[in-house]
Design a protein around this nucleic acid. Structure first.
Lengths: 143, 143
DNA sequence: TATTGTTATACTCTATAACTATA
DNA sequence: TATAGTTATAGAGTATAACAATA
């Protein structure tokens, strides 16, 4: 949501609060939703594609997507209907199904992941010095 | 989604890409969803509460929430059912209804907005120098 | 006639519970 | 009996179209 509502009176809080207030409109709403639209898939389907860096069982997908296994059935149905993935019954345990991307699905995945990795315009617009500074601060934040 | 999947081989891209890769897991999934859960409301309802910094007509709310006006009916129904807001028919144009927070709704709004303004732990954990550096870089990003 | 908000309806996303087919 | 996946079902969130009240 791009809200013009919750502007702090500016300077009311501390430095961290001000930094957070600056960061929020730069990262929300999430790129993920926009990329899903660009690629003509729903967010759950894009999430599923993202999870298929390698063949995954339905159960593994449910785990990675933090959703109930019953949902994965429908999501993989949609992937199959779009020709993006296939179910492959396991040969060792016939209860299990592996989901694998088709070539078309793999190509879409590569392009979509590249879009997700690509920094947004506000970041690319920073000077190289500022980019480096930001990277270094975020490295320390992660630690 | 907290994904262990799309780790760049580390160093494959430029500085901006690396900075973005560090930032993404720090800001997604959005705090907004977590705060909605904490306060016992759904995300659309929290969005509506956020929009009610002042009395708003149903149409204004639809605009601010980027959703169809028909949805606002149900959302405001839910706000009324929870005792958080009330419809006030306009006296000048009886088609129009203003939505205003109750005292209870106003209190919830204050606390929820404070939670949204509060910087996440990773940011509060930075040294004051790093916080200041980050703020300054983000100020330049916004410009 | 045009506008504000509501209702009717439909589709997607999500979860729980019951079911199947294997193990 | 236990497990992997599916189906049945229900509820929330969203949209479009038709409608009622008012302008």
């Amino acid at each position: 949501m791009g809200f013009p509502l919750d502007s702090d009176p500016a300077g009311a809080g501390d430095i961290a609060t001000e930094a957070w207030g600056l960061l929020v409109p730069l990262v929300y709403p999430p790129r993920f939703l926009e990329i899903a639209r660009e690629f003509g898939v729903t967010p759950p389907i894009l999430g599923a594609i993202r999870s298929l860096d390698q063949p995954r069982t339905m159960g593994e997908m449910a785990e990675l997507l933090s959703c109930d296994p019953s949902n994965v059935t429908g999501i993989v149905d949609a992937l199959e209907a779009k020709g993006l993935a296939e179910r492959r019954p396991s040969e060792v345990d016939r209860r299990v199904k592996a989901v694998v991307l088709t070539r078309k699905g793999g190509r879409l995945r590569e392009r979509a992941m590249a879009a997700m990795r690509k920094p947004p315009a506000w970041l690319e617009g920073l000077s190289e010095g500022d980019q480096r500074t930001l990277r270094d601060v975020l490295r320390r934040a992660r630690a």
